[in-house]
Computed example of a mutant assay.
Amino acid sequence: MDIILLIQAVIMGIVEGITEFLPISSTGYMILSADAMGFWSKDKVDLFVVVVQLGAILAVIYDYWGRLWQAFMGLLTGKAAGMSNPRQLGLSLIVATIPVMLVGFTFADEIKTYLFNPITVAIMLIIGGLLIFYVEKRPKTVIACEAEDVSLKTALMIGLFQCLALIPGTSRSGATIIGALWLGVSRKASAEFSFFLGIPVIVGAGLLDLAKHHEVLASSEDWLVLAIGTVVSFIVALLCIRWLVAWVSRRDFTIFAWLRIITGVIVLLASWLFGYQMVG
């Protein structure tokens, strides 16, 4: 058994758990981390990067089980509970999921073939950082204080923003949180709606990719590496979720914009100095 490979899987799980819900692109940082460590072959890394996100999204389901269950029951019964509207949350999540499902299922293989590389990640990190600066500078009028208040129209627009996250380096959380802020959703509600919206998208993408490409995991050690990364990402994400909600309730995302831009510039410089090539 390759101990170094298992340690690398732990590191990758930590990277996923920390970055999944921050507006800095978990996929981008996972690709960069794998590239820097020489972690696995490209086909295995591509599968690992998608499937290990299941651990992080299970942390959301665990931490928000009560509200998610209310949303599910609201869809079934058509009833709202208290002042919030769990049925509205359920409907909004369905509407917001449709665009990325259509685009993702149609172009998943092409995206992985041509865009899963450090150069694409670097460019999108920089572009995303500049967009964060722009949105944070804009005057904001709050139209939805809680995730349950997000209208179907706003949900559809957030879902369209989420499609941009299919490009590595964009950040699913970044696209949905910043997009929601742009549309007038409060900071706390933007973060939580983004968490919830990740459930159908990440679970669907992870299970589909595992079903389509499971043959690249040729040994029990391969499956162990994937399992370790997934479990570690669950534990780390569980520790990060509440911290992020507390953070966005008090502060803006400027620090993450700087982090994205600095990382992107470093990768582009490395590509120039050390000769990274586009893959695909």
Rank of each mutant, 00 (worst) to 15 (best):
W272I: 08
K140H: 15
Q70F: 04
L130Y: 12
I132M: 08
V231W: 00
F274E: 10
V203T: 05
V267T: 10
K137D: 15
L226W: 00
V203K: 04
V279T: 09
V232I: 02
A211P: 04
A165W: 09
G66E: 12
I202S: 03
N117Y: 02
I57K: 01
V52F: 00
G204K: 11
Q8L: 03
R260W: 10
Q8H: 09
I31F: 02
L244A: 03
T176D: 04
I132P: 13
R138N: 07
I241R: 01
W40N: 09
A246I: 07
D222V: 04
I241Y: 02
P99W: 10
V45S: 06
P99T: 13
A165Q: 03
V121S: 06
S190K: 11
V265G: 02
E136F: 12
V10A: 05
I111V: 14
F274S: 05
G169F: 06
A155V: 13
L89H: 12
F133R: 15
I177E: 10
Y134E: 14
E221D: 08
R250P: 07
V121G: 07
L93N: 14
P200G: 04
Q8A: 04
G38T: 07
S194A: 12
V185Q: 08
T230K: 00
S173F: 05
S92R: 12
V231M: 02
G66W: 08
T141V: 15
Y29E: 10
A175Q: 07
I14V: 14
E146F: 11
T154Q: 12
Y64V: 00
F107A: 00
A227F: 03
T97M: 13
R87Y: 02
L164K: 08
L22S: 10
Y114L: 10
A9E: 04
S151M: 08
I143E: 05
F256M: 11
I31G: 01
T77L: 06
S84K: 14
V267Q: 05
G169C: 06
D43E: 14
S219M: 01
I167M: 09
H213R: 12
S190F: 04
I132E: 01
V231P: 00
S84F: 05
A155E: 13
A180E: 11
L156C: 14
R242D: 07
W243A: 08
S194D: 00
I177A: 08
A191K: 12
I177W: 09
G104R: 08
G90M: 07
A165H: 06
W69L: 02
A180S: 15
F39G: 00
